[in-house]
Amino acid sequence: MSPQKTLFHISHSRYLQHETDGDDHPEIPARLEEVNCQLQRLARTNQIICLEPCEAERRWILAIHSNDYLLRFEETALTGHSYFGHPDNRLGYYTYEIALLAAGAGLAGIDLAEKEPHATIFCSVRPPGHHAEKSMALGFCFLNNVAIAARYWQDKYQRRRIAIIDFDAHHGNGIQAAFEESPEVFYLSIHEHPTFSFPGTGYAEENGTGAGIGMTLNITLLPGAKDTEVQNAFTRQIEPALEDFKPEVLIIAAGFDGHRLDDMSGLAYSSMLYRFFGQEIAALGRRHCQGRVITILEGGYHLPSLGESFTEYCSGLLQSTEEVGKCSSVAL
């Protein structure tokens, strides 16, 4: 029997106060309630340590977003508007503060990863972030939590070479835009083909610009794609690319909306694929980054699948090296 593993779960009760009321909005507080329920299941076999972050300081947000945008965002929330920019981006009175708290989770995760390099860290946040751009809210996202975290890791801890793996069903246009010219941040995203899927970006031909050419890898999957295609892409494209890049740290943009029961994409992943992601990512973190890996929640809207996929992913991350050795041969 292997010793008990520890999952550091960074989240905040106030994330539930980001209201997107309306009869049909999929990005709802119940998503995190579902994750919290699943944590109790994980707690049967693992130790769970829950941490609450504080708001990200303004200077870290400003590394990614414009000051003018932040002012507009704050004002839109406080003056009682129901959405920001596009009707998709519904918000409430507290949304601005809560978005700062959501950005804070990644920073808390990084502080922890620097103290405890082999800690398994998952940040369950909302609102999500990977569609948000410098001066534009998009696709339920206001602040780009992952991009803000990457800059923080660079500036505070001098970890210059960062790889971001985004397995949300949708392309993280905001993360790509933030780093497409950077030779130091490698953005790797696997998502549904942009002809079919929101937000219509992330074609395989987009591979970075200027000094960042080659530092963006978009892997596109046709509607209906299943686990095997993803596993092949992961082992044949993502792993060799990271072998060359040799990141110092890894940030994972974890979206669970590629699940076959989630109707926000046409992808048809099973819950078990997320265990594969967990195992492979933990192994990559050990191989390249002395275990310095943090994961930040993005999408995932079909509640039972979100819960199950989250559990599988965390279980994969927590599996020890020997166990992964046994399982990955089965998974492939």
Partner: peptide, 22 residues
Amino acid sequence: SYNLSGINHALADAGFQPVVPA
């Protein structure tokens, strides 16, 4: 729009079957 879930439901209510293109 990104609210695909809401739109899919509304279309289904109006009798339209979403298709996964192949």
